[in-house]
Design a protein around this nucleic acid. Structure first.
Lengths: 197, 197
DNA sequence: TAGTTAAGCGGAGTACCTCTCCGTATACTA
DNA sequence: TAGTATACGGAGAGGTACTCCGCTTAACTA
């Protein structure tokens, strides 16, 4: 088959102009999403990156793919944070800290992260959704074994609740509200039915 | 000054065809929103109602107005429910029951109600948003005075949290999840650190 | 009942969107 | 340097929101 030496495909490396365009697209997408929210015009992204719409859609077949790319770094950071925290002293604190970080992430760019968590499972369900859920599950399990988190409580529910906070406060004027709401959720996470203390 | 007798405007009553069209539009809008969610095409609504887009937009100047009209009955019912409940035995139960009813409302038609609560304050902020908030404030205040609801806790926060549940679970496959999440929030609303029981 | 009038209607029109297709240009390889 | 796979750009199809304005018609009036 053409230029392949072994029987492993070993495709040509990506052309540098393609790589550059891809990077520019992601950078401009971040800008545009920050200004106009997750429903922003993809044409506008292409325009600002100085490429045609066709180029944008070849690199990112749909909106979700672009959103994912924009958030990729942040998601990886979040997963690393989960790993770091998972070996910390207090399992409860680890979960708490991570959920706070996740809320910040989900609220970035007018709820872009939150929007992605809701849309993606429908569109192209996996990847970041799975990564986030696994990280949460790990920390929650620890907080249930070694900490004081309620046993009835799934990672999915917890994440969904935080995503909800991100979405409903995406356009809120009260900058403190997201944190207050998360604190409330955390109060429910620990405590209620356990009467030790 | 044409046909006015007194100096109060006293405009002609609305033409019956206009009234009928309005009703048909609302009915069809409910249908369409149920099928396609709150982002559904308004052109489609007009088409199904058998009117031109111009007619739709004269009756409802923007999407929000149409959403509000569709949910109007439900909102009024919700406010009446709040009034009824507010004179019930247990203030805690009253709040709980009302929040459950509100969650159902907010989830109707793929999160239409929830979407409205987030969009509306930006677009045309008042009316149903205000009504809901007042109802919630009343019940919460009672639950704080006569019941066991935490004193630090505003109606706005509580409502926002429930709206968040509605939004994030709008496309969830798990039909029980919304209720589970609300239960969690209620656990935080009453009691956490109270060790009676 | 016929005439007058303004309320209301419809749909063409503008400007935007998403996403596809394909002829052209170009970076890499040999 | 030549050949080629890769990537580009933008026209175009089909959708959306929303506006404008000439025509229709319900409702009042005499």
């Amino acid at each position: 088959m053409t230029t392949t030496h072994g029987h492993v495909p070993a495709r040509r490396p990506r052309r540098t102009d393609a790589r550059l365009n891809r990077e520019r697209l992601i950078a401009k997408a971040q800008e545009v999403f920050a200004e106009a929210g997750p429903e922003a015009s993809l044409n506008e992204v292409a325009r600002r990156a100085g490429v045609g719409p066709g180029t944008l859609y070849r690199h990112f077949p749909n909106r979700s793919a672009l959103l994912t790319a924009v958030l990729r770094d942040r998601i990886e950071t979040l997963c690393e944070l989960a790993e770091t925290l998972s070996s910390s002293e207090s399992a409860d604190d680890a979960l708490t800290q991570w959920l706070r970080a996740f809320l910040v992430h989900a609220r970035v760019n007018q709820g872009l992260g939150g929007a992605l968590m809701v849309e993606e499972p429908v569109t192209l369900g996996l990847d970041c959704h799975r990564l986030i859920l696994d990280a949460a599950a790990d920390l929650l399990a620890q907080a249930q074994r070694r900490g004081t988190a309620r046993a009835d409580l799934t990672a999915d529910d917890l994440v969904q609740l935080v995503v909800g906070i991100a979405l409903s406060t995406a356009r809120s004027h009260d900058a403190e509200q997201p944190d207050r709401l998360l604190t409330l959720v955390l109060d429910a996470t620990y405590g209620t039915p356990l009467q030790n203390e």
